[in-house]
Amino acid sequence: MATISLKVNEKSHVVDVEARTLLVELLREHLRLTGTHVGCDTSQCGACTVWVDGKSVKSCAMLAVEADGAAVTTIEGLSGNGKLHPMQTAFHTCHGLQCGFCTPGMVMRATELIQRNPNPTEDEVRHGLEGNLCRCTGYHNIVKAVLTAAETVRGGAQ
């Protein structure tokens, strides 16, 4: 067992884990943050996407011990106090989610995408979501939501 300390959604945790524990297992099973999902075992689907030190990563392709000392943000911590981040609001108003299973990973990746590219084209959004699979929406409304959120955030920054 290894003892690690990390911040998750601004809260500090000290946890004992097996070395082989994946970050997603730490989040879901040890910390009961079940908003981060597992949809595959080959790191294609992106349902497990969280931020580690501000960058989106697949938490199924990272060991918990690798996150020792890191700051992790999950869907539960994207926005505080039960409020919706503009990306979450845009997914809601654009109907960018159906079953909701890919949604947390999709939202985390999409939010990083517009942070790094505040004014993306549709093509840039589609390619920027390459690491996230959705079976319900055909991506049409997800793309629309990301473009809408980008516009909202740009408007708010002015």
Partner: peptide, 21 residues
């Protein structure tokens, strides 16, 4: 109308079978 069920999914508060322990 925008969906009523969205909020829990967007906040990571959906409750799927594997979430039940």
């Amino acid at each position: 109308v925008a969906r009523k069920e969205d909020r829990r999914f967007l906040l990571g508060k959906g409750r799927y079978t594997d979430d039940v322990t």
